[in-house]
Amino acid sequence: MNKLLRWLFFAAFIRPFLTIIMGLNVRNRSRLPESGPAILVANHNSHLDTPVIISLFPHSLLPHLRPVAAQDYFFSTRFLKWFSTQIMGIIPIARIRSKESTGTDPLAPISAALKNNDIVIFFPEGTRGRPEQMADFKSGIAILAQRHPEIPIVPIFLHGLGKALPRGEALLVPFFLDVFVGEHLKWTGDKAEFLTALNERFTALAEEGHIPDWT
């Protein structure tokens, strides 16, 4: 991670951009963890999701904010690889199991980051998918929670980014963004039960705001 460039990118570009062009409406900001280790779980609509979540935290925590991202996508070009590791500080994980990766644990780098008191950003849908529609959560988050039962998992519901910059679109159209932070939860002892609990948090958060039709 290039600390200086990363700080510059967020201070001089992302934050002014989010304040002036987009506009954030953050509800229950106080529920965000003040330090790591913690896992932030968010619904995924847009490439902007990660910068928005990172910008919710003070600059001092910047080195500790680590988004989990798919290696197959973010390592696809040299520039993207440099950008996502040096500026975004991603933890690359293998979404697709290849021959070399069999036998290795794809979630191991996340556990290492948590051990380092990092705040890990995780998108349990695994993909941006159809904009402003939530897909089922993959089991990765449950496995992670089971491995780290003491670490708080903070749900963050995002709305508006899928409208502003959905998958497959390069033209940005400004909309106000909603960020609803939920109360954290921890491993419940059962995979299905945990995923249901997490899903319920998201449903409740989505109902807190007004989400106009977008079809």
Binding site: K163, L171, V173, F175, D213, W214
Partner: peptide, 10 residues
């Protein structure tokens, strides 16, 4: 941001 809009109209 408040009114319903269509995806096609971005």
């Amino acid at each position: 941001s408040m009114i319903p809009t269509r995806r096609a109209d971005r």
